[in-house]
Design a protein around this nucleic acid. Structure first.
Lengths: 307, 307
DNA sequence: AGCTGCCCTTGCATAATTGCACAGGATAAC
DNA sequence: GTTATCCTGTGCAATTATGCAAGGGCAGCT
């Protein structure tokens, strides 16, 4: 008879197109050629005898039938992701790959030396680092471990608060030499965009009425802008203190901090290699608390003291 | 990272092996070569890094991990079957294939001429007839329509009672000419096996203490045995009256009947081609009620009258 | 208006998957 | 004990799926 999902894997490609809205976007997400996605979707629709997407010049749009298909396909995906987690969760080998996701400032400024140490300690475990400021899904196994900043973790994940990032004001020597005095409000500022709501709020509390001249969408970008002499920036001490081109200009209020979270999915917490990485990083980050909390580059050394 | 279900279609093959217990059985069920199943299962396990089956000389046995995988894969299968039904349920074309399942006595003795008429009426619809006495799953789309006998349909199906098969005692002319008298209890009998519980009960009520010399596992087999002169058999009039080699020997009690059911899955009842077939068969079977209820070959014409 | 970058679609070559044929082992039936 | 039938497993050829390269369309930018 007709209209059977003959190849269940077609649903995986269908979902990717549904999510991205384009064949090309789906192909990138899936790691295949866009012509492959084109043919697979076409064959899938032919086999079902139904149109799942409307073809537009700039992409593919779900039809009503496609929307119903998507709802079911998402349930299939959840189920299969659960199976993958179940299998991985029982894996007691200290080998294989762990995919870690984090934001760029941690990826460049904090993690590499710890991951290098981890690799020395566990040569059988490979690390795949996925850097990006989009929050990847651990439920869908887009990553196994996440190192995130924020003030509470998502509900479905398990993990621990692994440290606290204390922020201070930094600027480059070049910037400071050519700009006026100790009144912070009179300086140029590098701030953050609306996606960093916690940082925006704290900055506005700290310097009401000051509008940053540049708003970055990531802390790493802000740090780079500060190094380039574009202004002063509130930056985490654990990262900025390691930059020879930056100087700590002033402290920030005690609440100008972000918590650091080490997270995984509940089903994966007993996977040996994931357990090993989480334990290792937790210990390493604990030992780095003085740096993270700004107590090394420290108190009393700022160009401008706390008022 | 490891242990992801990379190709969701692997689950479909996995389930087939889990069900049948052998590569060869799964291959037959799936319509592929057994070597394909062998390689797909091997690759699936390698990709997951876990053994799902224990290899035995006579087949494949699920490991504990395999059993957990099976539980989830069954949920995936249900979901995908629901998607297939959803798509098919919306199909308004009077074309395509309808898979019909029924038991052998109906397949050989009743359906063919009606299916021939249906095909003439709807040349765009193809019929696939699956004959067997195993009850196929309409939920899993093993068939679209079932013509079954029994006294109530399974809960999850929808359908209608399409007629009633009245039974009578039949024997071949050869048998009767060479066997003694009007006492039915003194004859050789062809009965049914334990899977035909309703018929066994009725027969025992009818002739207590008579043990059939031959027990058939299908009514078609019983009919063939009766034609071969092996004894008397309780057979449905709608089928046996059409056999020139069989004569109705005696009536049976009024409750020696089976209901005829036309069934489909709830989600498929609005599929145009399935709707068309159900309506057509219901009408055809209604018109055949005189034959099915034994009123054509009938009353008063038996060699031995009802006591 | 022209250019750039994104998109979809298609023909051909390559890679991967599948089927075929065969071999060997185990079990059941005779 | 022998034979038949089932099973799994493997090498090679055939088939199918995929990637590559190219072309065309469209929207946005200069």
């Amino acid at each position: 008879m007709n209209a059977q999902v003959g190849n269940w894997d077609d649903l995986r490609l269908f979902l990717a197109v549904a999510r991205s809205g384009t064949l090309s976007g789906a192909a990138r997400a899936l790691g295949v050629n866009h012509s492959t996605v084109f043919r697979r979707i076409g064959a899938f629709e032919d086999g079902l005898g139904v149109r799942l997407f409307e073809r537009l010049p700039n992409g593919y749009l779900l039809t009503p039938a496609g929307e119903e298909m998507q709802a079911g396909a998402l349930r299939v995906e959840d189920e299969i992701a659960g199976l993958s987690r179940m299998v991985t969760g029982q894996d007691l080998r200290l080998s294989g790959t762990v995919r870690v996701t984090t934001i760029d400032m941690l990826a460049f400024g904090l993690l590499p030396r710890h991951l290098a140490s981890f690799r020395k300690a566990y040569p059988g475990i490979e690390i795949e680092l996925v850097v990006g400021n989009a929050t990847l899904s651990l439920s869908r196994r887009e990553a196994d471990v996440a190192l995130r900043v924020g003030n509470e973790p998502p509900e479905s994940l398990v993990g621990r608060r692994a440290g606290r990032l204390v922020f201070a004001v930094y600027g480059s020597a070049d910037y400071y030499d050519s700009h006026i005095g100790p009144d912070l409000a009179q300086h140029d500022w590098i701030g953050f965009d609306a996606e960093h709501a916690a940082l925006v709020r704290r900055f506005t509390s700290f310097l009401p009425g000051v509008t940053p001249a540049l708003r970055a969408n990531s802390v790493a970008a802000a740090l780079a802008a500060a190094k380039a002499g574009l202004g002063l920036a509130p930056l985490p001490c654990g990262i900025a203190d390691l930059e020879p081109d930056l100087a700590r200009v002033a402290p920030l209020p005690d609440d100008f901090t972000l918590d650091l979270w080490l997270l995984t999915h509940e089903d994966l917490r007993r996977t040996a290699r994931i357990r090993a990485l989480l334990d290792f990083l937790a210990d390493a980050l604990l030992k780095e608390a003085p740096l993270l909390e700004g107590r090394l580059g420290g108190d009393g050394a700022e160009i401008i003291s706390a008022p």
